[in-house]
Every structure is written in C-alpha cells, then in structure tokens.
C-alpha cells in the first residue's frame, strides 16, 4: 500500500483519552456484532417454518396444493398415471398401505383413492401424515380436495380404517414446458406419531364416560325389570 512512513507524533495525554473513548466504542461495536450473530442463529431456526411456507406457496419439493375442484371445463388430452406410495416411521406401530397401486386419469378429472391403516399396538395412537409428489416439479399442479393428511388420525388398538384422498391434476400441467412430458406422478405419504397425543387422553376420557353411562344404563335396565 502507499502508506508512507510518517514522523510519528507523540501526544501521550490525548492517547489516554482516546483509549478510553475507544474502549467504550469497542464495546458498542461488539454488542452490535453480537446482535448480528444472534439474529443469524434466529434466522437459521426461522428457516424451518419459512422453508415449509415457501414450499407450500411455490410447490417446492413436491408440496401439493389444496384446492376446490374447478377444472373450468378443461381436461387435458393425454392421461397421467398416479401411483400411490405409503411409508410408516419406524417408531409408529401402524400398518399403512395404498388400496390401489395406481390410477390413470386425465389432468382436469377428479379422482378418489383409498389408503388403509391399521394400529397393530395395544394403545390408541394419534398419527400425522406428511406427503409430497414426485417429480417435485409437479407439486404445484397436484391439487387435493380432501385428504386424510389434512387432519390428525387417531386409531384405537387393532382398529383398521380406510382413508380417502380426492384429488385432481391441474390441466395446465400439459401447457407448462417444464412439466408437459410428465406421464407418471407418485403420491407418497409417510405416517408418524404426532407430537401432540392429547387426543388419546381425551378419547380415553370420553370412552370412560361412555362406559360409565352404558354401565349406569345397564344398571337402570337391570333395575327397571325388577
């Protein structure tokens, strides 16, 4: 650098004053920088909900849309095959499978598919399903009208339920140059145990109350004939 050596000027008194002023300014700078660090950590954590919202808005990562069926009378020419995939978190003692392997439909047509879940444990459990479609890029065209994944599911011990999903593929999928070649879409669900199992307690409380009332009814019935 072009920093020429200069005659250094000695001003000891000024130096001390400057040092004091400087050290409080240093403290302020450090506090501001520390704040920056904590806001970046905050941002890292905020990225989790932000990422989810971003996916829901843009259909990223194969995030599907929620929609009311409205095909505006448009149905695409070429049909698309929708395949069904089911997974269960290893900590959730459920069996979960699609009841059909695939459905072929034309974009713009509404369809209904069923999944079947069985609770193989001896406890009622609340489960939640996460979902996406592959290839990821069709997420914004895959619309669900009604789905078991919109709400938490509660299964009693040994209970088997059949769960519907009604959906349609937006007919404009055939007009997007990025997606018009897609002929197969895989819809995938993964069930895991919900963090919030409070419904189970409510349920057992309700079932206890039902039992009590049934018992008392029985008792009344027993009394009545007598």
């Amino acid at each position: 650098m072009e920093l020429k050596k200069q005659k250094s000027t000695t001003r000891v008194g000024d130096g001390v004053v400057n040092m004091r002023k400087k050290s409080s300014r240093n403290g302020l700078t450090a506090v501001v920088l520390g704040f920056l660090v904590f806001s970046m950590i905050g941002l890292a954590y905020a990225s989790e909900p932000l990422y989810r919202i971003f996916c829901q808005v843009t259909g990223y990562g194969g995030t599907t849309r929620i929609a009311v069926f409205d095909n505006k009378g448009l149905v695409a020419k070429n049909s698309i095959t929708v395949r069904f995939d089911a997974n269960v978190n290893k900590l959730l003692p459920w069996r979960f499978k699609p009841m059909q392997n695939k459905i072929t439909l034309r974009p713009g047509e509404q369809a209904i598919a069923f999944y079947e879940a069985t609770n193989v444990s001896d406890k009622p459990i609340v489960g939640t399903a996460v979902f996406n479609v592959a290839p990821f890029k069709v997420g914004e065209y895959f619309n669900k009208i009604e789905c078991f994944c919109f709400t938490e599911q509660i299964l009693l011990p040994g209970q088997t339920v059949q769960m519907p999903v009604t959906f349609f593929v937006d007919s404009s999928i055939a007009e997007d140059r990025n997606t018009k070649e897609v002929s197969t879409i895989t819809l995938s669900y993964t069930f895991y145990a919900s963090d919030d199992q409070s419904e189970v307690e409510n349920l057992s409380r309700t079932s206890l109350e039902i039992k009590k009332s049934v018992d008392s009814l029985r008792r009344t019935q027993i009394i009545q004939p007598g």
Partner: peptide
C-alpha cells in the same frame, strides 16, 4: 464468519 457460522451452529 459472523453471518455464516451462526447458520451452521443452528443447523
């Protein structure tokens, strides 16, 4: 460093 490392720490 100040902008990138906290993100790694969070992750």
């Amino acid at each position: 460093l100040l902008l990138a490392i906290p993100v790694l720490a969070g992750a």
